[in-house]
């Protein structure tokens, strides 16, 4: 009798955990950034952002390889990797955090969420609060996440030489556009 109860309990715990934890992933999130300075505007795009999201507790892990960013000019790309973000030493930018509230999988309208977590680039981590818009599609099979935030170069120890202040902005605008797919259980 006792063992049967234990089994029922086990199944209950199991199923409840499974029902709650719903994971979504993407390996092709679009990450772009934009620098607007007096002499030139610089734009770079990567379509290789990797992210995993748990809709139950809103926890998210996001990373993008610095080398995956493509620039308009090849020399800019080389300077970006060599001189600014030092991609060989710090190959990735990451964000790990949690949503302040649960994602409503039944709603079809865009939901505003706040992600609190640690943003790391160039080996320097900062606690950040990022606003995101999440849209649930295909009855919860897909999630679309969009975000726009600013990154100050000096917060992450990315040094811009004084003679280039006219070419590179001190604050970079970052745009995230990720289409998550449900991970089938």
């Amino acid at each position: 009798m006792y063992k049967v109860l234990l089994l029922i309990l086990a199944i209950f715990i199991c199923s409840s955990t499974a029902a709650k934890a719903q994971f979504y992933q993407t390996t092709s999130a679009k990450v772009s950034f934009f620098s607007s300075a007096p002499v030139e505007d610089i734009k770079a795009v990567s379509n290789e952002g990797v992210a995993v999201l748990n809709s139950a507790n809103g926890s998210i892990s996001f990373k993008v390889k610095m080398r995956s960013f493509g620039f308009e000019k090849a020399l800019m790309q080389e300077h970006f990797n060599e001189n600014y973000v030092e991609s060989e030493k710090f190959p990735e930018a990451t964000f790990k955090g949690e949503s302040t509230k649960e994602i409503d999988l039944d709603s079809n309208s865009p939901q505003q969420h706040i992600l609190k977590g640690i943003f790391t680039v160039h080996g320097v981590s900062k606690e950040r609060i990022l606003p995101v818009t999440v849209t649930v599609l295909n009855n919860g099979k897909k999630l679309q996440l969009e975000s726009k935030f600013n990154v100050a170069c000096k917060d992450h120890n990315i040094k811009i030489p004084k003679i280039l202040w006219e070419n590179i902005a001190e604050v970079i605008e970052v745009n995230i556009n990720a289409d998550f797919q449900i991970i089938p259980r």
Binding site: A10, C14, A21, Q25, S59, K96, I183
Partner: peptide, 22 residues
């Protein structure tokens, strides 16, 4: 049953992330 349970509990965004190979 407990093994499955513990596996599900251990699974989180970081462990899934680590399994994605690029």
């Amino acid at each position: 049953m407990f093994l499955i349970c513990s596996f599900l509990k251990a699974q989180n965004v970081d462990s899934i992330m680590a399994d994605i190979s690029q």
